[in-house]
Amino acid sequence: MADAAITAGTVARPNYGSMSRDRRWALRWSYFFLVLFAIFFLMPPIYMLITSLKTSQEISAAGNPWWIYDPTLENYIELLTQNHYLTFFRNSAIVSVCVVALTMLISVIAAFALARMKFWGSATLATGVFLTYLIPETLLFIPLFKMFAWVNETLGIQLMNHWWTLIILYPTLTVPFCTWIMIGYFASIPKELDEAALIDGATWTQTLTKIFIPVALPGIIAATIFAFTVSWAQFLYPLAFTTSATELVLPVGIITTLIKGDVFNWGQIMTGALLGAAPPLVIYAFLMDYYIAGLTAGATKG
């Protein structure tokens, strides 16, 4: 707000001194480059939309690829009525919702314990949780692959090639970060607040549900969004651990079923990718501030 006032002041002021002239030129250049960058950043999603509205004849024709001569919803109808696309979408939705619920349950409770109810080794554990967040899934998928085989041999539970296996796996990607940012949010709540509750005779559960969760709600929303986008976008684990068409989730499903050998059905692939990108984009459009809060919290909190 403060810099808005300053900017407005400088622009409105009559033309004297080089500072306001400089300022105006800086503003013009800023807009110029912002437009260039916006074109670069938005070109692929826009091209997805353009391609998704074309017929396959038009896609393979030699005309202008950036223009739709004969708009059609053919790709959308075909994708949503045939193929396994709806199955992928359903699998993705179930997995993501379960993972979000599980993640928030584990991380909010653990973060509360780590932020307020210090116990032996709790500080080390908080650091350890953060370190876990830095271990990438590309390091873990091979040993996990072998562990699943072992589970199948000894316990007789087949974990491979089931979409619900992903519900067990994804929390490893979401819980550490969510716990970390929840610790940050909980730690920023003044101690007086829960001391007052304790004096009034509140139990730990009441302190958590009646005070911490309501007060840290923005943090919880940010963490929820983070958990959802991570589990919706995860690609490596489903690629490694699921194969049959009924068990796939979105990103892998599009790539393995719509690309048949060397035949790329680009109209449908782009439609599928665009619809697959829609849920995170919709959430982002409505909850942008929480999304960004979650993004920046990782490095600025704590």
Partner: peptide, 19 residues
Amino acid sequence: MLLVPWVIPPAMSTLAWLW
């Protein structure tokens, strides 16, 4: 507007680049 590339799942947006 400028954050959109980060929001789209990477596997999906890479498909757009592939095309």
